[in-house]
Structures are given as structure tokens and as C-alpha cells.
Nucleic acid binder design. Structure first.
Lengths: 209, 209
DNA sequence: TCGGTAATTACCCAAATGGGTAATTGTAAC
DNA sequence: GTTACAATTACCCATTTGGGTAATTACCGA
């Protein structure tokens, strides 16, 4: 029966909040029954009555929108949160995405586009500008080139799999002493001293697949 | 003098290749002097004469476009590669981005939009659909909730920083035995047995910031 | 109030790890 | 043809780690 998209709104500016909820409620297929001026109030309300999409201002008094995303996603992992911002290419937008937001919209977007973006998000999309998208994809692409030899990369790969000297040696048909030598060289090249560090660095810098 | 954007093209279909290079060369501010029907030829050529943007077909005979991206990015890390595809929401698009492409364009895009996208890419954007963008951001957001207690997360965080029992104990003002106990619990909860494994799992599943 | 969980500490012990040093072989570059 | 580096192996030794077991305190929900 209810094919409407339930939109939640978190925005401290009273006028904007009124305007947006009015707009949403006035559009067939959309409804906004929950509009709050702070994350704190929104979080409490959303826990008992969860909307489909949340529009969240980034700059909020008290708990920031970014922190709000973190908390909401902790409690409601499947909730789709779209940030509202005035600064198109702000670092805060990127941080919001890292915290769990699925996209963002610029404040002042024409109503038609706003509704379109909400619908797109509801259907699995992620509204964002080309510039932010680039930032996002760069953050997960490999940082080439690596200073390691091919053999060392093989060893590193297994190291990250949690394997020990003996197992790695068996897999590569070499002695454990050789494995040890490779690992020592890897440590030197990456400037680390322990297993944990090398695994952390390798994955974070995407030195291994 | 040369404010033109140099576009490289890799596309096996002769007609499409002709058409696109003709289009690009016929547009002020754009030039396409390098159009190839295979990755192999393109890679060789781009190494000596590198374009600003490469448009790369995904489905290519011989080396695939995805593999092509991998190889090109290995040799020319700063090269911007945009994929060309017929299937909008293909897994291959996502894989291309993982391999190092910055975005993709659907074949058959109107000329104006194609040129616009090239320009946007040149200026630091990343052309992609909302759906792909979502996939990309999901791939790097935390997989909440975590089974660990707050204290355990603190310990895990330090573990991933490569710190040992003693250092962690000092930082948290507890005994090394306690640290050990926490780590043992973490291992049990995450079903791992070694440092390397826990670090790997924690980072990959984004259990820590 | 009882039971579960989190946090804390302790001890024992086998296995794994990290650092130092050194040598041989093959290959690629100069 | 010599230099440089990658890959291979070896040995010694101190430190760290991981597993087992057990106990106390505190808090929270039923």
C-alpha cells in the first residue's frame, strides 16, 4: 500500500527545515513526517520509527552531521543517509561518506532535482559530484608502484593471510630461512619491524591485492 | 600554446574508433592522435607519448580493458583512464575502477556529453553513474556492527599500529596480562589465531578507523 | 538477587618472531 | 667484466606471542 518514500530530515535552520519538509510532503510518492533540528533528537526518534532516507545537514550545533552518521549507522546499519551541504567539495563531505553516508546534496538544489536524487538513492544510487566521486575512488585504488620485488610481494601476500614462516616456505617450495630473509627485506623496505605493522601498511597502502 | 586535451583511444571496433576519434578531433580543445584496437599496441605507444585522458573499451580481444588499466597504471600511475562500456551496471566497471580507472562512460553517449565528461575528468572529476558510485562507497565503509567491546576495539586499534603487549599496556594503564586477555578474546571473537590475521581482518572489514 | 558479560590480573610454557651476520648463485645493467 | 641486486640458504639468540587455566571486581538485565 505504502509505496511512498519516507524521508527523515535533520537540519538546524528552522526555515530550511520547514521548506524542505513542506516540499517533500507536497510531492506525491514522498512523505516527511520526521524533521529535527539536532542529531540527538533525530537519533532517538529514528530508532523507533525509521525512515527510508535521511537527509542530514553537515553543520549542526552539538553533534555534527558526520558524528551523527556514525552513530546512526552503528544503530541502523541499513539506513541510507544523504548529506546536505553548502560547500560542494568540502573535506567534510568525504568524511561523511567514510562515516557511512551514501551521498550528498548541495543545499539550494532545485526541488525537482532534490526529489529525483532522493528517489535515486532509494533505488540504490549514490548522489555525488564527479569531483567527490574521484576522491572516493582514489582512496581505494592501489598506490603504485611498490618498492618490493615480485617474490617479496608473494611473501607479503601470504603474510597478510596470517601464515607463518613454515607454511609460506612450503607453499613457495623454499626454506624457512629464505622466507625469513625475504621478510627481513620487506621490513627494511617498508620501514617496519613487526608482522602487525607490515600487514597494516600493506593493506592500507594497497601493496597487495 | 597547447591547451588542448590529448585523448587516447583503445577500442577494437573499427567504426566506433573512427567515429570517436573523428568526433574528438573535430572539437576545438580536444585532439585524438592515438587510437588503437588493442591494449597491447596502446600500452607500447602511450609509454613514449602519453595522452592526458585514455578512453578504454572494457571488452577487448586479447588483453581485456581491465587488465589494460592495471598494466597502464603500473607504468604510468598518473594517467587518467575512463572506461567505455555498453553494460551500465556491470561488475566489470567496478573491477576497472579497482584496477585504477577513474570513471566510465556508456557507449552511445551523445557527443556533447562525451566531450563534457572528458573535460570533467581532465579537471579532476570522475564520471560514473549513481549506482556505481554507491557500489564504490559501500566497498570502503565500515561493516558494522562489530562484535567487539569498546575496550577490545581500543586494543585492536593499537594492535594494528604494530604495538606490542607492553606498549599497549602502558598506553591503557593496565597490565600486560590484561592486554593479553583482551587480545585472546579478540582472537576468539574474530576467529583468528595470529597478529597478522587479526590486523588483516580488522582493516579489511573496517572494524577499526 | 541471580546469572551473564566486561575488565582486570596472574602464572606457565611451547612456538613463533625479529635481528644480526654471512655465504652462494644467477641475472641484468653498466 | 665487474658491479649490483634478487633469490636462496644457514646459524645463533633474545624477545614476543599465543594458548591454557583461574580468579576478582563491577555492572546490568531478568
Amino acid at each position: 500500500m505504502e509505496n511512498v518514500i519516507k524521508v527523515g530530515l535533520v537540519e538546524d535552520d528552522h526555515d530550511i527545515r520547514q521548506l524542505m519538509s513542506f516540499l517533500i510532503n507536497g510531492s506525491p510518492g514522498y512523505v516527511c513526517e520526521q524533521a529535527f533540528e539536532s542529531c540527538e533528537k533525530a537519533i532517538e526518534a529514528f530508532e523507533t520509527n525509521c525512515p527510508d532516507i535521511v537527509l542530514m545537514d553537515i553543520d549542526l550545533p552539538g553533534m555534527s552531521g558526520i558524528e551523527g552518521v556514525r552513530v546512526l549507522k552503528e544503530k541502523l546499519p541499513d539506513l541510507n543517509i544523504v548529506m546536505l551541504t553548502v560547500h560542494e567539495d568540502d573535506e567534510a563531505v568525504f568524511d561523511s561518506l567514510c562515516a557511512g553516508a551514501v551521498g550528498y546534496l548541495v543545499k539550494g538544489l532545485p526541488p525537482i532535482q532534490l526529489l529525483q536524487a532522493i528517489k535515486e538513492t532509494f533505488e540504490g544510487g549514490a548522489p555525488m559530484s564527479s569531483a567527490i566521486a574521484r576522491k572516493v575512488i582514489l582512496s581505494f585504488q592501489p598506490n603504485l608502484p611498490s618498492p618490493l620485488s615480485d617474490r617479496e610481494k608473494e611473501v607479503l601476500q601470504m603474510l597478510c593471510g596470517g601464515e607463518n614462516y613454515k607454511t609460506i616456505a612450503e607453499r613457495l617450495y623454499i626454506s624457512t630461512n629464505t622466507v625469513k630473509a625475504h621478510i627481513k627485506n620487506i621490513y627494511t623496505k617498508l620501514n617496519v619491524n613487526t608482522r602487525a605493522e607490515v600487514v597494516s601498511k600493506a593493506i592500507r597502502q594497497k601493496l597487495i591485492r
